[in-house]
Design a protein around this nucleic acid. Sequence first.
DNA 1: GCAATTTGGGAAACCGGTGTCAATATGTGC
DNA 2: GCACATATTGACACCGGTTTCCCAAATTGC
Lengths: 336, 336
Amino acid sequence: MKSTGQPTINDVARIAGVSKKTVSRVINRSPLLNQATREKVEAVIAELAYVPNPQARALALRRNFLLGLIHDNPNAQMVLNFQEGVLDAIQGTEFALVVRPVDRHSPSLFDDIRKFIEQQRLYGVMILPPLSENDALAALFRELGCNYVRMGSAPLDDAAHLVQSNDRQAVRDAVAYLVAQGHTRIGLVQGPDGFRSAAERELGWHDAMEAAGLPHGPDLMARGNYTFETGREAGGKLIDAAEPPSAIFASNDVMAAGVLHAARGRGLDVPQDLSIVGFDDTAIATAIWPPLTTVRWPIRTMARSAALKLIDPEAASGEQSLFPTDFIARASVAPR
Amino acid sequence: MKSTGQPTINDVARIAGVSKKTVSRVINRSPLLNQATREKVEAVIAELAYVPNPQARALALRRNFLLGLIHDNPNAQMVLNFQEGVLDAIQGTEFALVVRPVDRHSPSLFDDIRKFIEQQRLYGVMILPPLSENDALAALFRELGCNYVRMGSAPLDDAAHLVQSNDRQAVRDAVAYLVAQGHTRIGLVQGPDGFRSAAERELGWHDAMEAAGLPHGPDLMARGNYTFETGREAGGKLIDAAEPPSAIFASNDVMAAGVLHAARGRGLDVPQDLSIVGFDDTAIATAIWPPLTTVRWPIRTMARSAALKLIDPEAASGEQSLFPTDFIARASVAPR
DNA sequence: GCAATTTGGGAAACCGGTGTCAATATGTGC
DNA sequence: GCACATATTGACACCGGTTTCCCAAATTGC
């Protein structure tokens, strides 16, 4: 007779006058169960406020109900939105979300992740860019028999293991908008080497410039690494060129803010002297002046989809895995 | 003979030629164990890459190794830094971090949290502001027998359940800095009603103004709710006043960015015409122009401390629970 | 050299669930 | 009224660890 602690299935069984197994059947909505029995047991469950012990279930079922999120992303808002999206998906289920920030430059990265997976025996993991672009890492998950979903900006894997946005198309459209505003020299601040998203966004710029018959040589390109400071440097380089652009597309919002900073430091007015477009629509896009024209991708929805793919692959197989982006026009672009 | 799946304690015991219990003793570093036996078992463990099943351990020990993080914070960078700090603390242990974003305005907030705690049977939870300021919530955790630590800007609880920064002192110092720069009319953009941090920061401003014998009436105060937009409105209100301030302290960085925005919209130069100071030192502080003078609080260290308090209360009892802040002088302040 | 005391390690029960399979009612066809 | 199918429930082993209890071997004291 234990009075302390939460009630167990044995307590419920004893009080309801049935066997453990019957209680288990009620919990799991087994169809072969008498209605009267079910109601009797449910009444006791409600009375005791009984909640099944997930650890015991995990042990018996040989799988737990933990979803992992592995990330090393410089964009906090993005990571948090992703977490919220996962929560949308697991709301009301017995799943929980375990987070694991990592350092992608750590030499022990793979060991750390392996240890994490083996220790926690996760039901599945979700991987955020840029880690998600690492095929060796995906191979590790397969080797460990751990279900996974990668979040990406381009085809990395089969649909079952991926949620993605079409960054190339999105940037193509964004740059086409600049062209429609009369801009003919449009600079590009590239993202870092090794980021798939950076490569895709560069391709989008390239596509749009080529389609419009506009120049798109290396003198219109400068590389950053998704940080404010590198965006400022790259922007400065483009602005200081012999033939500076009248508009710049930066591969993310933070770098776009850097470009803005560089322009202002040189006495340029944005958007009159220079139009700027970013990517991500994070909080900074509306926290700077002028507010930034940018591209929003539905990260929360994508996160929900990623979690569903892990929880219930069959049900999610009908779900899309390529998500559309939104172009958000704000005051940082003016007609030429 | 199971070839698939991870090795269990039984596999180790069989191969090492000892009993389960002996293996368990090795894992738990029981002292009453022969050195030779220990080494033999350890060799087998290493060979099989055996990792104890945390679910089974959790079941047998009647407690699991999950730390929960409950938050509803508008500041993504802060939440993420906190997560990283917790990870610092649990690195190398068997603990994992489970996150749970919530909506503090949801009518089912308490039910949701109660369900979360009961379902997951967490080892302990950490609560971030502003949720951490809710005493009824703390009472809920006590009722549920769930260990908790609150993160706060002022005394909310006994030291064992709290990590805090001294916001009042920090703001007092920051405003004193403005006074030292020759400013005599210094405005305050308050944080939202009901936020303890907002109240503390307001007190700090009040302290400093009073100490300097400067005016600190309601005409120098305007309220925001920690968002950019409200910061912009509050800043506009102060600037448009009959006798506008030459410097403004905003209770967080995002609102400070809003004030900057408002100033620029009215043709003021920052810092020449208006000096601005923020609070938090989040990413936005250096992503705007001019970079923001602000106050940094050691959130990552505080998070580490919070996690330690949960994991090992005795060891952490010596730890401080009041953390010092840093004043970060940048270009958004100029002498009057 | 023998009893007393440590020390090392095993057997079995247990944590709180689930799966398998058999047992017990109930209903059906003849 | 009887053999048989079917619906409902329970007994028991099991998931992979830990704890309790106890015994055998090794060491010590005399």
